[in-house]
Design a protein around this nucleic acid. Sequence first.
DNA 1: TTAATGAATGAACGTTTGTTCATTTCCTGT
DNA 2: ACAGGAAATGAACAAACGTTCATTCATTAA
Lengths: 199, 199
Amino acid sequence: MAKEHQTKQFIRNAARKLFAERGYNAVAIRDIAAAIGKQPGGLYNHFGSKQAILVDLMQENLERAEAAAIAPLADLSDPADRLEAFVRGHIAHNIANPDDIFIAYMELRSLEGAGSKQIMAQRDAYEATLRGVLRDGQANGAFVIADPAIQARAILSMLGGITVWYRQTGPQSPADITECYVQAALQSVGVTYTAPSER
Amino acid sequence: MAKEHQTKQFIRNAARKLFAERGYNAVAIRDIAAAIGKQPGGLYNHFGSKQAILVDLMQENLERAEAAAIAPLADLSDPADRLEAFVRGHIAHNIANPDDIFIAYMELRSLEGAGSKQIMAQRDAYEATLRGVLRDGQANGAFVIADPAIQARAILSMLGGITVWYRQTGPQSPADITECYVQAALQSVGVTYTAPSER
DNA sequence: TTAATGAATGAACGTTTGTTCATTTCCTGT
DNA sequence: ACAGGAAATGAACAAACGTTCATTCATTAA
């Protein structure tokens, strides 16, 4: 009984690594099977199709992203605090799950049909949360921004860029990177940022 | 004699559109041929391989990017002015060539062999220019940033994000978007930004 | 021990892929 | 008008693709 979950998880892990490495379209079902030492046909006992594996990975990732970046906002009311918490949670999740983030960003195009609509809707909800924080801060006078919707996307793009080069980086620690990006994100909305170590 | 260049350009245009739409791996040579009303075999009179088309597109794009974002810096010496000029040039190029930018960003993985190395080197040089501007501003005291190398990538990621959603946007004019991003980029390095219209 | 159930096999399927090539068509310089 | 060379054709190739399937294997419940 534990066997099923084990193999299914092996498939997930192998697919995640390969999709992130070469891209969904460049990975064959046979590659995933070979990576876990199995035959291709057997994977269909666990996933209905190659597409289903991709959807599964994206879904799991979005759930974890919400837990990291959105859940902590419940305790905060000040827009600047909320933005900082969101950014920190988002970055933490990005750094902890680089492959998932990379896939979520690069393989949106590879989604088809029903799975596509569902993932898109979940993504929109995530972005809407950030947009709400920015709108509050703008109304509040705390943020100096032209448009909350554009700014939300600008920030997410900036933070999303971490994963593009994080693998390749050398000396910077996750904490350094986080500080750097938190500063950039908060300053980008006109907030004067002081590092936690100097408060 | 004009015929060769004409067909070659048709191939470029069709490939650009299709690569941006579906991704390099999801586009067949036959699709490109069909898009210009030709047979697949004929394309090999103009490009040695499918890969060569991709390399050609990326190369052309990088040359235009340099002309737009780097060339104007020659006239400027103040770091803040140079950064603003770079960002404006970069954005202008992004908005004018959304498909090329999208391809350059998404299809780096699809590059192979010699073409890959060459494109990577050209990209690095482009990024190094921005890095230099940031370093100067930091040394100058004009910029409040933690690390020029990280900051350069953060800004490029942020600006690169424009093309991800630019197609989908409605009401904002290119000028609005540019203002928005110039402000975000300059503020992200700690510069107080005032719009040209209010100077 | 036996029966039953789900996992794994590995060959096979029909497509689609990038590329090649002998052939034909078209244009151009003389 | 004609020769020469590039451009275009369209069939063909081998390889790789996602998926299916009859079969075997392993595990567990009775």
